[in-house]
């Protein structure tokens, strides 16, 4: 089980959280100019890297807040936890 440090509640067990999948997926727009390809990519296709990954997590059983996690999908090491709306500089973690 992962021990994830919620930015508000501190370290809590993985079962208190829900993983929201890949972080920083942006809705393409303006909507009338988006190709089917770009729209399908936005709706259905996600990165599935072996190694460093950025994910959204929700502390559903605790404070109910969303946040971002930089996690290594091989070692499960969590390199950083950072608020929604922020990005990590490339190469700064994971």
């Amino acid at each position: 089980m992962l021990l994830i440090t919620c930015p508000h509640c501190g370290p809590r067990a993985e079962i208190e959280y829900r993983c929201g999948g890949e972080a920083h997926v942006e809705r393409p727009g303006p909507h009338d100019q988006v190709s089917d390809q770009a729209w399908a990519d936005y709706l259905f296709y996600r990165a599935n890297p072996k190694g460093g990954h950025r994910e959204r997590w929700l502390h559903v059983a605790g404070c109910g807040q969303w946040f971002n996690v930089a996690r290594d999908t091989i070692t499960h090491e969590i390199a950083a936890v950072y608020p929604m709306g922020e990005t990590l500089a490339e190469g700064s973690a994971a």
């Binding site: 509640c9 370290p11 809590r12 067990a13 079962i15 208190e16 059983a61 605790g62 404070c63």
Partner: peptide, 19 residues
Amino acid sequence: CPLDLWPDAFPAGAAARSL
């Protein structure tokens, strides 16, 4: 309940939501 309830992590006066 998955919380750490030992005194270091959860002293008197602590409160949390969990499972």
